[in-house]
Write a protein that binds this DNA or RNA. Sequence first.
DNA 1: ATGTCACCTGGTAGGTGA
Length: 255
Amino acid sequence: MKLATWNVNSLAVRLPQLLDWLAAQQPDVLVLQETKLTDDKFPHADIAAAGWQAVWHGQKTYNGVALLARSAPTDVVKNIPGLDDPQARVIAATVAGVRVIGAYFPNGQAPGTEKFAYKMGWLEALRAWVQDELTRHPRLVLMGDYNIAPDDRDVFDPVAWAGQIHCTDEERAHFQGLCGLGLVDAFRLFEQAPRTWSWWDYRNLAFRKNQGLRIDHILVSQALQAQVAACQVDKAPRKNERPSDHAPVWVELTG
DNA sequence: ATGTCACCTGGTAGGTGA
């Protein structure tokens, strides 16, 4: 079973690339972030015609998430239950016996800002909810754009980025809090090429210089860890003429 | 290099968010 996450930075712009990637990679589940579409504009007909079922949760201009699957997603949840959040950042469903949570974590802008405080509150609510979900669904995958680089190995210039957004101790502590629930970063279960990132700024020729961050992650629950066979970032879509600033990340589960 | 992209409002540019 192959599960993947991709921040497409506007599904309206990236739909052709999405369909290409689905055809090439054949994931069983793909979660999308930053669709930037209201629900009435979601391109469900194109996605269905390509052979994937979908559920989605969008809003105007910002955020927006979706979950695509080969088999029917059930028990769909949109946003974190109990969190009064006008921003569409979470979609969860059960697919083929695996609980899949797709999330677009808040960016946080900069430490000390209102957006950073929102990010901290959101992360706390997420942790509490995921802990609860795990009691009902031991086989669980939490994936998406975390907007957190968990370790200095995940940052192209850790000195310059020390204490900056995505790299603060507070954000990293929240990432470790999720790991404390028994979740593990699937990417780090394997030897990986150094300087592997999932996001490169559009500015500064960052992709050409391979100056990026690893902020898109797939965390798998304890019950699934023995089944993790591979986890990789697919840089290929970032080389497109009009790419998203993020690359997809996928994990393969055996059985 | 101050080096981009996507979306909005409101208009043929400027502001916001990432």
